[in-house]
Amino acid sequence: MIKIRFVEADDAQALLEIYAYYVKETAITFEYDVPSVAEFQERINTISSFYPYLVAVEDGHILGYAYASAFHPRAAYAWSAESTVYLSKDARGKGVGRKLYQQLEADLKAMGILNLNACIATTSLEDGHLDNTSQKFHEALGFDMVGKFHQSGYKFQTWYDMIWMEKMLASHDKPVQSVQSIHETKRY
């Protein structure tokens, strides 16, 4: 049975191993070099200090992770967050990403986040480094494409497009409630 939980300090190495594949073998991330464990742990600490950072575990084995981060640092964007998900190669296509996103969305709603955005690399010619599975995954979860940047990322001697997808998590009532840290919600 797959369990979704918050990230723990001991998870950094396992999460980095999942991420390293995407850095070295795919254009899903535009990062060129695999970060060190210390740098990756710092990223986890920074993100999880305010936003949910979730891990999918089955039989003690980490299958993947998802988190939200600030969409933009200016105060007026507080009600928007950017989502990220990475799965181990063996966990893809088994509903793990969907389970992670369902919990991520529930946590973000509890915080008061209204808009969830995803920045996704896309290609018109699948080349072994990128297909459009992430776009299709987000569409299946109710995200809509709201913008496209042409040939904006260069990796593996190839130019890739980037799209922004968006999902409204709740209504945009006025007056708006302040966004709370994940640590202030009942789930944490």
Rank of each mutant, 00 (worst) to 15 (best):
R5Y: 11
R5T: 13
R5W: 09
V7Y: 08
V7H: 02
V7L: 05
E8I: 11
A9N: 02
D10F: 10
L16R: 05
L16F: 02
E17H: 13
E17P: 07
E17M: 05
I18W: 01
Y19G: 02
Y22S: 01
V23N: 00
K24G: 06
T26V: 01
T26Y: 06
A27I: 06
I28T: 10
T29C: 07
T29E: 12
Y32P: 02
E39C: 13
E42S: 14
N45P: 06
N45Q: 11
T46D: 14
I47M: 05
S48H: 13
S48M: 08
S48F: 00
S49T: 12
F50P: 03
F50S: 09
F50E: 07
F50T: 06
Y51R: 05
Y53N: 11
V55I: 14
V57C: 14
E58L: 09
E58V: 12
D59W: 03
G60H: 05
H61I: 15
H61Y: 08
H61T: 15
I62K: 15
L63G: 06
Y65W: 14
Y65V: 09
Y67V: 03
Y67L: 08
Y67A: 07
S69R: 04
F71G: 00
F71V: 00
H72T: 14
R74K: 14
A75E: 05
Y77M: 03
